[in-house]
Design a protein around this nucleic acid. Sequence first.
RNA 1: GCCCCGGUAGCCCAAUGGCAGAGGCAGAGGACUUAAAAUCCUCCAAGUGUGGGUUCGACCCCCACCCGGGGCACCA
Length: 824
Amino acid sequence: MQERDSYDIQAVQEKWLPVWDEIAPFRSGRPDDKRPKKYVLDMFPYPSGDLHMGHAEAYALGDVIARYWVQKGFNVMHPIGWDAFGLPAENAAIKRGVDPAAWTYENIAVQKASMRRYACSFDWDRTFNTCDPEYYKWNQWIFLKLYEKGLAYRKDSAVNWCPSCQTVLANEQVVAGLCERCDTQVTKKKLNQWYFKITDYADRLLDDMEQLEGKWPEKVLTMQRNWIGRSTGANVQFAIEGRSEPVTIYTTRPDTLFGATFFVVAADSALAEELATRSTPEVASKFAHYLESVKSASDIDRLATDRPKTGLFLERYAINPVNGEKLPIWASDYVLADYGTGAIMAVPAHDQRDLDFALAMKLPVRVVVETGEEDPTLTGVATSGDGNLINSGALNGLTKEKAIAAIIKQLESDGLGKAARNYRLRDWLISRQRYWGTPIPIVHCAKCGEVPVPESELPVKLPPAGSLDLSPKGKSPLGAASNWINVPCPRCGASAQRDADTMDTFVDSSWYFLRYASPNESARAFNDEDVKTWLPVDQYVGGVTHAILHLLYSRFFTKALHDMGLLDFTEPFTRLLNQGMVVMAGSAMSKSRGNLVRLSDELGNHGVDAIRLTMVFAGPPEDDVDWADVSPSGSVKFLSRAWRLAGDVTSPPGVDFSKGDSALRRATHKALHDGAFAVESFRFNVAVARMMELVNATRKAIDSGCGPADPAVREATEAVAIMLSLVAPFTAEEMWERLGHTPSVALAGWPTVDPTLVKAESVTAVVQINGKIKTRIDIDPEITDAQFEELALADPSVREALTGKNIIKVIARAPKLVNIVIQG
RNA sequence: GCCCCGGUAGCCCAAUGGCAGAGGCAGAGGACUUAAAAUCCUCCAAGUGUGGGUUCGACCCCCACCCGGGGCACCA
C-alpha cells in the first residue's frame, strides 16, 4: 500500500463543506428533542471587514465548547449574528460615498462565508443582524417599555464635545482629553439627551454578582464592582448662613463630623453659582472667572495625579450641625457636581484631598481620630486608620465603627441626617447624533411634549441614506430628512417632529441573546416558550474588553425585563469565559506597527484545522496568544500524524474492543476521561496535550506494540478522531471516513469511559525517609494506607536504612507515597 | 498610590500540599534515502523571581520584597 503520508489540506476542506451543509450537524434540536439543552454563545462580531486573527481565536474556543457538548449528547444551541449598527459603516459612507446599509450587508456576507470555511459550529438557521428592521423594531419596543416604567428619560447634561468636528463624542473617543480624530481639545457641552435609568438597579447589579461567583472570571466581577462603586455613609444637613434651605452633603465618614474645618461645593454646580452670586460683588466676579478657568481646564490637567488644588472662598458659611461651628464655604473643582450632592464637609485630618486643599489654602486641621500615626499637618499625609475618637463631644472614646453608628443614630433622631449610599455608576446615556443606529421612537409635539410612537407603528425605519449628509455636524443627520422627521403627533394630530437621534449600539447587544431563541418571531421581541427552553445562556465566550459595559447593560436589561414579567431569570449569562488577544511578538497587531498577521494568509499556508489547533493549544484560553511563540506548522505535523493512524488501522468497524491490548485501552480511556475533564475546566491546551499523548501511544502500539490489527488500535484511533473533532473538524472527519464510518464525526458521541480502564493496573509509589526519596515500589492503586505502609516498611532497602533508628512517625498517602520520619 | 493576575528547561506551557515534566516548539544524534524533504526512534536541558515562615513534605499555603501584565484612580 503506497499511501501518501499526508493529505491535501485544501482539497479536504473543499470536500467536507458541502457535506456539512447537507447534514447540518449543529442545527439546534426541535422542541420535541429529548436531549438536555445547552446554550453556548460567542459574542457576535461587528462587520467591519473580514474575520481576523482575534475572531479565529474566539470562535475556535467557543467551538470546542459547543462541539464538546454535542458529543456529550446535549441539544446545543450555538448561534451567531451581527452587531451591525455603528460608526465604521458611517465613516465608510462619509469617506467613500457608499451606502452604510450596503457596506454592512456586504461585510456580513463576507464574514459569514469565512465562518463557514472556518468550520464554525453555528446554527445557521438562527442568524440575524441588529440593523434589520425586524430586529431594531424590538429595540424600539423595549425602549417604549422602559419609558413606560420611567426607566427611559431625558435630561440636560454636559457631554463631551469636539468644537472642530462639531460632534458629541463618546468617552472612548476622547483620548487623553483630545478628540481621537482631530486632536482638538474636547470641551463639555450641555445637551438634552436620553438616558436609561440603570442606577435604579445598582444594588441588584452588585448583589446578584454573588450568583456569578466562581462562574465568571473574578477579574470581571471586580471590574463591575468597581464600576458600580457603591459606598455607604450618611447624608448630613448643614444650615447655610443667609440661606433659608440647608444643604445636604454625603460623607462616608460621619464619625469625623467634629473634624470638619471647612465646606466645599463643586465649582460647576448650581449651588456654587447661587452662593457666589448672592455673596459680595467681588466674590461673584471672581467666581465667574474661576468657573471659566475650571471649564477650560482640559482633561489632561484633570487627570494629572498630583494636580495642585484650586478654589475660591465664597465668603459664606455653613453651620456644623453637631457643634454649631461656622465653616467657611469654598468652591473648588476637586468636588464633583454629579456625585453625591456636589457639596462636602472637609475633614482635612482624615482625608487626603481635603488635607491637600487645607494646606494649599492655609485652612485649619483638626485631628478627631487617634490612629497612632503622625500629625497630618506636619507630614502632609491624612490618616485613615481606626482608633479612638477625640475632640468629638459624645463620640469621644468610641472606635470608628461605633462612632459611625452612634452619630447616624443621633443625626436621625435630630432630623439632621440619615444613613445613605452612593454609587459611582451613572445613568446610561443612549442618544447618539448619528445615522446608522436605531431611531428613538418618540415624537416631539409642541402641545403634547414627548409622545411615544404607538406600538402598532413600529418599527420606525431609518430613511434611506442616499440624499443625507452623514458627516458629523453636532446634530443627527436624520434631522435633515424632512420627509421622515415631520410627522403628525400620534396624540393630537398636529404637526410634530420625530426624535432625530439614534440609540447607542450597546442597546442592540443588550438583549440579542434572547432573540436567538426565536429569531423569526414577528409578533414579539422573543417567544416566551423558546426563551424558557434555552435561556439563560449556559456558556458565554468573549473578550475581556466587554467586561464592563456590554455585560453590565445586558444584566440590567435582563433584570428590567424580568421585572416587567417578561423573563423568569435575573442573570443572562450563567458562565463566562474571557479569551485573550492574539498578539505578535509581544504587542497588539496593527497595520501601522507592521506586525499584522493576516488570517487568510495563515489559513492558506497551514489550513483551517492547524490554525484552530494552534489557537487552542497555545496556552490557557484567557492568556494572549503570541503568534511569534506558536507553531502552526507543528500543528500541521500533529494533524498528519493523527490522520495517518486512521490509514494504519486494519480491523473492521464495529470490532469488539474488549479483547484489545489492555495497555492501549487504558491509555485511550484515560485520554477520554482526562480530555473531557480538561475541556470542562476550560483547559483546552491540556485537552490537546492528552490527544497528542494518545496519538503517540497509538503510533507506538502500531509500530512496535500490539500491531495495527489489534482492536485497541481502532478504539484508540476512533477516540482520537472524536476528540479531535472539537478542534480540527476537517481532519477528524477525514479520519472517521477512513475508519469506515459515515459522517459526521461531530455527531459520533463521546465514547463511554470505562472506569476500570481509567485506573492504572499498578502505580509506582515513592518511599521517603525524612522527606528524601529512598526507593520506589510498584503497588496496586487500590491499596490502603495501612497495607501501603506495611509494604514500604518491608522493603529491604528501607529496612536497612532503618536499622538502629527510631521511627517517630510514618505518613502513608496511598497510592502516592510513604514518608518515614526517623530520629537524627 | 490602591486592587487583581502572573513569574517553572533556550521558548510556549503542565503538575487535588506528595517522584518538578504531561504536551509542544527549538536543539543534538540516529534509522530510512544516491541525496534531501517527509517520516520514525533516541537524547538534551530548569530545582520553580528573591528572602523568610508553616508542614513529615511547598511550584502550590502565609508574610515581605523584585519583575511583568491588567484594572481603578480627586466618587468625599
